[in-house]
Nucleic acid binder design. Structure first.
Length: 761
DNA sequence: AAAAAAC
């Protein structure tokens, strides 16, 4: 109870208290003054912190300081301030913000990253191997050259608060308002251009499986048998005017196609799998059963009913057994995937049959390979089939517009036949790293199509001919509209983090994109938190989808240890610093970009090397900063939820949620950045006192059982939590599923039961 | 409310 005393006049800053922002009247007025920040960057921060924190907590950032100091600006800054510009920028800039003229300012701000000692180290290296190829490409490298100048500018100045010293005014003038960001980006973007290196630098492999978020236990499949699902057949009709492609045959009604390779499937004849194929969609839960769960489960109920696959049932199965060809199997082994994980064993055969699939598997369960490998296999088989019946009527149709010979693997300008959509650029990049080698092994090409980088290279790749496009919605739609990307031949569309892709802001673009793909094409939706939120897409585009998940994947079987610390918001930054001052990779989550920046600066001030990752950074910096954590050059990454899903970095053993998430799904995804591959992981969530109830509710939905602990700066518990987490449960990574299944948990029981039923059905 | 996603 002691803690939260409110600072002066009002209550302490809470998670969001816009009103509070005005606390100008508060005792802290002085601290807020720009002086604290700007005057002495190094020492001032501490003092000022209080105010600043509040501001940040409030989601506003430095702004206030400005306000107080100069009331005039405030208003403007705020307005402009919208999402357009980074809040921290705003702080500096007063109203002037609106002038877009000075993009540079912003630029500088980010340059800060560069200033950091370690950063600089990197940069200079552009010459370094990693980046070298950049140059090769569009000369992306150059960008760096340009930047340097800015950085120097910055160097002179201290961090953002330094600006405080300076006359705000001109600063602002210089900087553009919301446009700043855009400008910035653009300028840098160009620099970044060569993105290709992304791919190059990364190691290929293992992460494939890790990308996903954990979570699970949704095993409550029960009623999938109902045939209540709406028929979608007409959907296709209205949706597109495209002629049905040969792929249409894949549908259940059709007999097995040549490339279906029935034989292979057979090898994998676990009863469950095959039956599932025949049964009606399992997407819609039985009406009657809906309410049978406790009220608490309401939200959770939103999860799709799925057929749970027992982990042990997949033992002894090989990728070849699942129907994948030799080259692909070999490549998977090279990637570190020797034998299929449960989710892979469950979905690969079904995907190969041409069915629409909804797959849910927790973090690191191997979802990327689960959809990537069979997608490549299908394209390859399709290619082979066409070659076989050269001149086939259907083939002609599907290759219309392309050179007549589909035989040639790399047909110039051939339109892509598969599309993989991801919510963030980093994830798209990561997926490509896994899929590209698989595709390459059978002579197929992939390309990344996402924003933040020049489109030239992407367009060039498309012109050369690509088989699989992997990217984010924005740029893909952009290129489609420009007529540079033809999706009409896409017969396999994959949505990674599908539930997130159905969130506001993403859904419509995604729908528009899918409508551009071949009518009746196969659709694969994957996510660790797949729920009925994907109904909008399922109803419009999927036909009799098979829904799979792995039984026993619940929190109880997780290797992640959870802690919730109830703190005084004023101590938040220092507590984060205390926790992050450790050996081992640490990922810190912030609710806003501004706070991510602020925390990064704070950590640096505390002598902890850290880099930030959020949407206000240009892509080159985003990629570089993430790379720094991956490479171990820096141990702390402060990110917004841009890094919450899918991103895999080996060995992150501590995740700190400086700001608690609003959604249980977000919690699970963020937490899933650690404890991967059966390794020990720890998640520490900081919450203000007034958030306890909400947090408890959220954890309940996530099915995570944790006790809250009151913690103040200096508490020895912080040091303990900073230690490397010990391997949680004795269970090895593979064992968990099995164990869980055996466990007495009701959830586990449900899945198995269900599992059995469906088959009989 | 925020973040992400195109230029």
């Amino acid at each position: 109870m002691p803690k939260n005393k409110k600072p002066a006049g009002g209550r302490p800053a809470r998670d969001f208290d816009p009103a509070r922002g005005k606390r100008s009247g508060g005792a802290k007025a002085g601290s807020r003054s720009p002086g604290h920040r700007g005057y002495r960057p190094d020492e001032a921060p501490k003092k000022a912190r209080w105010t600043r924190d509040e501001r940040l907590d409030a989601g506003r950032s430095p702004h206030r300081a400005d306000r107080e100091g100069r009331g005039e600006r405030m208003p403007e800054g705020r307005r402009t301030g919208g999402s357009a510009r980074p809040s921290y920028d705003r702080a500096d800039r007063p109203s002037g913000g609106r002038d877009a003229r000075d993009g540079q300012r912003d630029g500088r701000r980010f340059d800060r990253d560069e200033r950091r000692p370690y950063d600089r180290g990197d940069r200079p290296d552009r010459s370094r191997g990693d980046r070298s190829f950049d140059g090769a490409r569009d000369g992306g490298r150059r960008s760096f050259d340009d930047r340097p100048r800015r950085s120097s500018d910055r160097d002179d100045r201290a961090r953002s608060y330094d600006r405080g010293d300076r006359p705000n005014r001109f600063d602002r003038d210089d900087r553009p308002g919301r446009f700043d960001r855009d400008d910035r980006r653009r300028s840098y973007d160009r620099d970044d251009r060569p993105r290709s290196y992304d791919r190059d630098d990364r190691p290929r492999r293992s992460f494939d499986r890790d990308d996903r978020a954990p979570r699970t236990r949704d095993e409550r499949p029960r009623s999938y048998d109902r045939g209540d699902r709406p028929q979608r057949s007409f959907d296709r009709t209205d949706r597109t005017d495209r002629p049905a492609r040969s792929f249409d045959r894949d549908r259940a009604d059709r007999p097995q196609r040549g490339f279906d390779r029935d034989d292979r499937r057979r090898s994998f004849d676990r009863p469950g799998f095959r039956d599932s194929e025949r049964r009606p969609s399992s997407y819609y839960p039985a009406k009657g059963e809906q309410r049978s769960f406790g009220p608490e489960d309401d939200v959770v109920l939103e999860r799709l009913e799925a057929q749970a696959v027992q982990a042990d049932a997949t033992e002894g199965t090989s990728f070849a057994d699942l129907g994948l060809g030799q080259n692909i199997v070999r490549t998977l082994a090279e990637l570190g995937a020797e034998s299929p994980f449960p989710i892979q064993a469950a979905t690969i055969p079904v995907v190969l049959e041409g069915r629409d699939v909804l797959g849910r598997g927790r973090t690191g369960s191997g979802k990327t390979i689960a959809f990537g490998a069979p997608t490549v296999e299908r394209l390859m088989q399709d290619w082979a089939a066409r070659q076989r019946d050269a001149g086939g009527e259907r083939d002609a149709a599907s290759t219309a517009g392309l050179g007549k010979n589909a035989r040639k693997r790399r047909e110039m300008g051939r339109a892509p036949r598969a599309l993989i959509l991801a919510p963030t650029r980093e994830l798209a990049l990561q997926i490509d790293r896994t899929v590209q080698p698989i595709a390459q092994s059978v002579g197929l090409f992939t390309t990344q199509i996402y924003g933040g980088v020049p489109q030239g290279r992407q367009v060039g790749a498309l012109q050369r001919g690509v088989d699989i496009v992997i990217g984010t919605p924005g740029r893909i739609e952009d290129l489609v509209e420009q007529g540079r990307l033809d999706l009409s031949q896409v017969r396999i569309t994959v949505l990674d983090e599908a539930d997130h892709m159905c969130d506001l802001g993403f859904l419509e673009p995604v729908q528009r994109i899918i409508r551009r793909t071949a009518d009746g094409g196969q659709k694969l939706l994957f996510s660790a938190t797949l729920d009925t939120g994907v109904a909008a897409l399922v109803d419009e585009f999927l036909v009799d989808p098979a829904v799979y998940e792995v039984a026993g994947e619940d929190q109880a079987s997780s290797t992640i240890e959870h802690h919730v610390l109830v703190i005084d918001n004023r101590e938040k930054r220092d507590i984060v610093a205390a926790l992050a001052d450790r050996d081992g990779k640490t990922l810190v989550f912030s609710r806003t970009r501004a706070f991510a920046e602020d925390l990064t600066d704070h950590l640096e001030d505390a002598g902890i090397a850290a880099v930030a990752l959020h949407g206000d950074l240009n892509q080159s910096r985003r990629t570089r900063n993430l790379q720094q954590l991956t490479s171990g050059r820096v141990d702390v990454l402060v990110a917004t939820d841009v890094a919450a899903r899918g991103i895999h970095v080996d060995d992150i053993d501590l995740v700190i949620q400086a700001d608690a998430p609003d959604e249980y799904k977000t919690y699970l995804h963020r937490a899933g950045r650690t404890g991967r591959a059966g390794k020990a992981g720890r998640v520490v969530t900081l919450i203000p006192r007034n958030r306890q109830r909400r947090m408890a509710e959220l954890l309940g939905r996530a099915e995570i059982d944790v006790d809250f602990e009151d913690v103040y700066l200096g508490d020895p518990l912080l040091a303990e939590l900073a230690e490397a987490p010990l391997a949680p449960s004795p269970e090895p990574e593979t064992a968990p599923e099995v164990d869980a299944a055996d466990a007495p948990d009701p959830e586990d029981a449900a899945p198995s039961a269900v599992d059995a039923e469906p088959r009989s059905a």
